[in-house]
Design a protein around this nucleic acid. Structure first.
Lengths: 137, 137
DNA sequence: AATATATATTTTAATGATTGAAATATATAT
DNA sequence: ATATATATTTCAATCATTAAAATATATATT
């Protein structure tokens, strides 16, 4: 294979990658439309809904950031009264974040934006996409 | 469909999305392994290789950043002697960025990292992935 | 031709998210 | 009882980015 066709393939890959990345952000874009919260903040609220509660460390792992960054993120959401810090009794070093009532309401509002039928379709397609991508990475 | 299964679908979607995003970064991760340059810097070098030259404005559009950010990105690459600013003669307001010889060498080094056979496979799969994703977004 | 308006880039100060490392609090092992 | 390990917070510093003013050049209008 020539150097030229190598470059051509890399060019195709970069273009397709970029497009995939843009599309993979569309769902959260949809959720964040008209919201004053940042996308990370929305994602954290959703994760808290899915997991009921998350340790600071778990949040740091999820977002691949330092503990200090988690403190900062949670401070902001706590100031907005969307999440609440809860000290764990079995180990008083750990802090768990949970949604407040307002936080639960906000998550329900997000869910209202989503057309029911579409959700199943999107989930199915994304699972297939991942299977396909697993063949190369 | 119940509220519960709605949440479940959103949970699936978020998880798959995240995984897709991670996988879609793998190619550039591969390129940037062991490099001192940032991923954006590598991507810009590649784009300059593909396009021969790019106006500051084109770079701003490509990365969806302000012109000021482009100046800053290009300053750094120019300081590293990887790109060069060229004033356009037909319109002396515009600046075009081009790879220097060192820049060309760097891009060739990046290409060396890529196993030839794999490139075609990856390109094919990514095109299919995009087709699949187009059905939902 | 002179003047006003538009465009491309750079400069600059400010912002915001993040980091690394020290500080604090608590738990576990010796 | 003491040392070591762990979880979180604090804080100063860094970095990429932005918005807006400044600069330079081009185009349109009178």
């Amino acid at each position: 294979m020539s150097k030229n066709s190598q470059m051509h393939n890399v060019e195709i890959i970069m273009r397709e990658m970029l497009e995939i990345q843009q599309k993979s952000k569309m769902f959260v874009n949809l959720l964040s439309e008209g919201e004053s919260l940042s996308q990370s903040q929305l994602i954290l609220l959703l994760q808290l809904k899915f997991n009921d509660e998350m340790k600071a460390t778990e949040i740091a792992d999820f977002f691949s950031v330092t503990p200090g960054a988690v403190t900062s993120m949670c401070d902001k959401l706590e100031k907005l009264n969307l999440v609440q810090r809860v000290r764990e009794n079995e180990d008083r070093r750990v802090v768990k974040m949970v949604l407040t009532n307002s936080g639960e309401v906000k998550v329900q509002e997000l869910f209202l934006k989503l057309s029911q039928e579409k959700l199943t379709d999107i989930a199915k397609v994304l699972i297939d996409v991942n299977k396909l991508m697993s063949t190369i990475f």
